[in-house]
Design a protein around this nucleic acid. Structure first.
Lengths: 248, 248
DNA sequence: TGCTGACCAATGGTCCAACCATTGTCAAGC
DNA sequence: GCTTGACAATGGTTGGACCATTGGTCAGCA
């Protein structure tokens, strides 16, 4: 099997091994593409394709130019990429909106519960800021949705688990497009938004009071209620198995 | 901002838009690289880099050759890729093993709980199969770990939420390497394995009896116990900020 | 001395044109 | 019919050239 390995896979494996071994850690500078190509005895194209692959996964970043800021490095941060990947997969209809919502509920119940049991003044201040921002006047749908997401992700974030936080953000982001569309066709959107903000306030208060179970319940109700009102359906329902044309 | 868009980004956005719009759904066949390049007025290289990016994210698959099986398509399945991406990020120390474990517990508690409340004969049969496979003689560490993962993912799967299931698999897979290493250095590995299987049996029984809360508790204990014994630490702890060599 | 600006080098980004490798199709020949 | 070989379509790979961006260098000037 190893004999027919594609050129870019050689590069891919080379880089991945260095990372898994710990030889290249966050911030490390990779050799220039031309040099790496020479080392591995493949074309520069192959190196570039491998680098692109890893960049798409948020593992590498490339910057053009000269000096210490340039070159290809192990990426310092990649939460966004994970979110984008998940979003794409949801858009492909692999997961129903129902599933995504249920997953959201599980994740966010847990975060709210944990945070409520372990809340600090700083955390409350931060969370309060996002609440206030959301209640500002003149926000259009998109701006509001960004802040809405921020509120939920902040709770996950403050609960102390970065991985949970990233997944929460990704799951919420994957719903961004359908939520926007559904919001736009809501007759009483203003009223809907007011309701959301009231629910957010209640969640905030429960967390502030350390009422963990109640906070979790409120989060669940909040999510279910918004989706009930928005009545989001799957974008690309039940992507059929391409019926194998066996007519012969 | 749009003016200086890189060539491969043009292609990337083109493909992504088609997917998000629902014009290309799972199984759809993309135009040949040469043709797509002509359509977008970029080089084939640019197209290939974009395709590689999306392939790395599990969104596309490419097959060489002629006939209906060839060409680049929207990928039918991608769970594996998510796992690989997460694994890389865990290796980079972006997420601590502790965080990953806690996330596992949350996910798997929930799955076990749901499944126990909603169990069918078919589900039990399937789950029983993986149990039996795990108890076979002569399995090496890797084979056993694969089956172990399968047991946990199967529970998530049977609980009915594919997204949860995929995330569970990804999270478990991201721990595969450290678990293997830790297992190899365990003096009493055989005993450890026996203990795991007993715990699995108990989880199975709780699910079979519909004892949801107990099943969840057993899962949590099982995960915590194994990690306590394995004593897995972060591979590349607290990756230092690369000390900028300012010696001159 | 200290600033400015032209040049230079390093690096990723892009393109092209050719060729290779794999695989299904189809017609010719047996 | 069956095999076989040519062919076509498609992704995989290469080398080489050139572009674009960025930081550093250094001469020249104030």
């Amino acid at each position: 099997m190893g004999l027919t390995m594609k050129a870019y896979e050689i590069v891919l494996r080379h880089i991945e091994e260095h990372i898994l071994d710990g030889r290249w850690t966050v911030g490390a500078l990779l050799p220039p593409e031309r040099e790496l190509a020479a080392q591995l005895d493949v074309s520069r194209t192959a190196v570039r394709e491998a680098v692109r692959s890893l960049a798409a996964q948020g593992v590498l970043t490339a910057s053009v130019g000269a000096g210490p800021e340039s070159g290809t490095r192990i990426a310092p941060q990649h939460a966004k990429v994970l979110g984008k990947v998940l979003q794409m997969h949801v858009a492909l209809g692999q997961f129903s909106v129902d599933e995504v919502v249920e997953t959201r509920i599980m994740l966010e119940r847990s975060s709210a519960f944990t945070l409520a049991n372990n809340v600090s003044a700083d955390a409350l201040a931060l969370l309060g800021d996002t609440l206030a921002a959301m209640e500002a006047d003149g926000l259009d749908i998109d701006a509001f949705n960004v802040l809405d997401t921020e509120f939920h992700v902040t709770i996950a974030n403050l609960s102390g688990n970065q991985l949970t936080s990233v997944i929460t953000g990704a799951v919420r982001q994957s719903l961004a497009a359908p939520i926007r569309v559904a919001s736009e066709r809501l007759a009483n959107y203003a009223e809907f938004r007011t309701g959301l903000m009231r629910q957010h306030r209640r969640i905030f208060e429960a967390i502030a009071l350390g009422e963990a179970e109640r906070a979790a319940d409120l989060v669940e109700f909040h999510i279910r209620d918004s989706h009930r009102i928005l009545a989001i359906e799957d974008l690309h329902p039940t992507s059929q198995e391409p019926t194998t044309e066996s007519m012969v």
